[in-house]
Write a protein that binds this DNA or RNA. Structure first.
Lengths: 141, 141
DNA sequence: AGAATAAAAGACCTTTTAGTCTTATATTTG
DNA sequence: CAAATATAAGACTAAAAGGTCTTTTATTCT
C-alpha cells in the first residue's frame, strides 16, 4: 500500500512526535533504534520531511529532529503525500490514465469507494492520534 | 495498490472473459491490443495464470487464451492473489511483521478496516461482474 | 510429413526502489 | 577558537519490479 520509505517515515515520526511532546529532540540513531528502521535510509527520508516543513531539525551537540507544529495539525495524509505522493489516493485501480466517472474502467466505482475510505482515514488521523497507540515496545521485532 | 503486472492481468482477463462468453479464444496480440498492455510482459503473466488454473490456453493455429471456468467463480481476489499474493490484503500498514490485535501498531485498527473493505470488495466482485462495465472502448488511451 | 501458427520457457536488459557510505556543513560546548 | 556532535547532501551499490527477446514446444492445416 505504502512504500517502505513511507512506512519508515511514519514510524520515525511517531518516535519524534512522542519526544517532542516532552520537548526533547531525538537523534537519528535513537529514532532508528526505536522505530526499527535502517539508519541512513531513514535519515534521507527525515531530511525530505524537513524540507517539506513537516519536521524540524537542529545540527550540533544536543541537536536532533523535532516537531514544532501542532501534532494535531499533521495528518497521516500529509505524511504519505510528502513521501509517496498522492498516487495511492487518486490512481485508477487498473492503472488507466484516463479513468473517471465519465469514462470509468470496469472497476471504477467499487475501487473509488475503497480509495475514498483510505483517504478519509488518512485525513482524519493525525500524528497525535497515532501517539496514543504507541506504547513502549510497539516496534519490537 | 496493485502491481503493474496485476493491473495488466485484470485488464487482459476482462478481454479474454468477454471472448470466452462467445466461445472465442484470443491470441496474445489481440489481448494486448485491446487491453493496452505490453505484449511480452502480459504473455508472461498469462502463462502464470494458466499454471494457476485461472486461465486456459491452446497452442497452434486457432489457439489462444480462454477461460473454461464459470466467470462468476473467478473473483477479483483470486486474480490479485494469483499475481501479487495476499500481501495487500493482510500486511500491516506500517510494515511490521508482528502486528495484530494483541500487539497492534498505532495504525492497526484504522488500517485493518480499510484493508478489510478492499478485501470484501475483491471477494465480492467476479470477473463476470467486471464484464458488465467493459464497453468497447474502455481501455482506449 | 511439412509449414505455419501460437503459447511456453527462460535468458536477458532497464528502471525504480531500497539502502549504504563518504564528505560537507552547521551548532554547541569547553 | 578548537573539538565534538549531529544533520545535509549526494555519490554510490543492491535488489526488486518492469519489460523484452530468442528459442522451444505443441497444435493445426494443407
Amino acid at each position: 500500500m505504502f512504500s517502505n520509505g513511507c512506512e519508515y517515515g511514519i514510524r520515525a515520526l511517531t518516535i519524534i512526535g512522542r519526544a517532542s511532546k516532552e520537548d526533547r529532540k531525538v537523534g537519528i540513531k535513537e529514532i532508528c533504534r526505536l522505530a526499527k528502521t535502517p539508519e541512513s535510509f531513514t535519515a534521507k527520508i527525515m531530511q525530505n520531511l524537513v524540507r517539506r516543513g513537516i519536521l524540524d531539525s537542529q545540527k550540533g551537540p544536543a541537536g536532533g529532529f523535532y516537531i514544532s507544529k501542532d501534532l494535531d495539525s499533521i495528518t497521516l495524509y500529509d505524511i504519505v503525500e510528502a513521501i509517496d505522493g498522492t498516487g495511492v489516493f487518486v490512481s485508477c485501480g487498473l492503472g488507466l490514465a484516463h479513468c473517471d466517472a465519465s469514462r470509468p474502467c470496469p472497476l471504477h466505482d467499487k475501487f473509488a469507494s475503497v480509495r475514498q475510505e483510505l483517504k478519509a482515514m488518512c485525513k482524519s488521523n493525525t500524528l497525535n492520534d497515532l501517539l496514543s497507540g504507541l506504547h513502549d515496545q510497539v516496534y519490537k521485532r
